[in-house]
Amino acid sequence: MLNMMWRNESKGRFYDPGETTVIYYDTRSGDTHLLTAFAAHVLREFQTESLSLASLITRIAPVVDAGQATDLQEALEGVLSELVAMDILKQE
């Protein structure tokens, strides 16, 4: 699981006025999504390159509370699978 790679297929646009949710317009599918700020943060990490779950954890860990860090992998797996289901990310 940790070595699996994901890439962003869509190269979309964000509208982020600093609320708990963020708008993401996927230019590839034409769909517009309402993402949680966390999912949007994860998605932004993929804007320039493909990432493995391990490297994603390394990048995200510093921005989450220490108390939540233990659940981080589980949370990220959930977010990744949802982003895949929305045709935004693709598993390589």
């Binding site: 509208y15 006025p17 708008i23 317009y25 517009t32 309402l34």
Partner: peptide, 25 residues
């Protein structure tokens, strides 16, 4: 109310938001 879900709701009930693509967004 939040801007983001106002965006989504208004876009969802728009006649041509998705038709306009980039311009719509």
């Amino acid at each position: 109310r939040r801007r983001t879900d106002s965006f989504l709701l208004a876009a969802y009930h728009s006649f041509n938001y998705s038709l306009l693509g980039d311009t719509g967004f």
